[in-house]
Amino acid sequence: MNQNYSIERGTSKIRILLAILLILVAGLAAGPLLLSANDLDHLIVLFIYIILAIAWNALAGYGGLVSVGQQAFFGIGAYAAIRLSYYGMPVYLALPLGGVAGAAAAWVASLFMLQLRGGEFAIGMWVLATLIQQLVSLDPLIQGSTGTSLLVLNHFSPAARRADTYWLTLAVLLGLLGLLFLLLRSRQGAAMQAIRDDEEAARSVGVAVAPTKRLVFVFAGFGAGMAGALWLAASITFQPGTYFGVQWTAYMIFMVLVGGIGTFEGPILGALLFFALETMFGATGVWYLIGLGAAAVGFALFAPRGIWGALEARMGWRLLPVGYRLVLVPESQHDAAASAAVQFDSHA
């Protein structure tokens, strides 16, 4: 049977979706002109959660690396911003450099940590995070576990500070999403998705596994570092115990696992869900955390592809064109069943 086929990156609905996305982004960018201070604060938190979820998903979902120590880079991002602003650097330059510090630390850590496999890597990263927390606490500027504050920010009026932090957070979020999107469509992205699906098979067809994993690890370190610096900009105070706490990783795992690990859209959905749950139940304290733990166990055991993964498998949904689709065009053109697209990338 001689079949014609064509390869397409997305469906025709993509253009409509992109238009909606552009309008949404424009609306979000106008946020400080339209929204109340309280709404802006909430949106900043939501954006930081999405950044954390994207970063952890890149690492675990595409690199196959489960880390319980990404709080190391979250803390380093905030600490570097404090240190640099203490040395006299303008604060809105010091904050993005916090992300760069996270990426640099990830590059150094990649030299030895990526030798570890599976669970060894997971806890090894936790040890590294604990060590970095203890070293940061030795810095006299931080005053041990008491912590310090990014006092420079108090020179700005609260409204200006809030708007600047909001725009910076939104810019970082869109930048990271754009970067990941381009990365996934590139040669490196094909390698990342191949490693996600089967590391051994990817290696056997010539994918350079180690450099690809390092790239993903540095990307995740940059994202977590940026998130830490932005959290500092929003909350001003810095305590090593809070920033280097393992709860950040717990949140990241929850968002990615529930949203859909190894998908582009899943972590965003997971972050939205996490943010909604926290707004509704966060006040119940420990019971809320028990619920998060139970949901994480439940999803890991019974729905490991998360909500988005399940929807995608059932409905064939794909919002953003990060993969390839193979469309079969049989010679009998009137055959309606032929319009069923066979998904070429192996999400299913």
Binding site: V66, G118, A122, V286, L289, G293, A296, V297, A300, P304
Partner: peptide, 21 residues
Amino acid sequence: VLIPLLATFGVSLLLDNILFA
């Protein structure tokens, strides 16, 4: 490889907070 790590991490989160409660 990933699922046992995610599941046991979830169990630790669950246990710690139940004990705290």
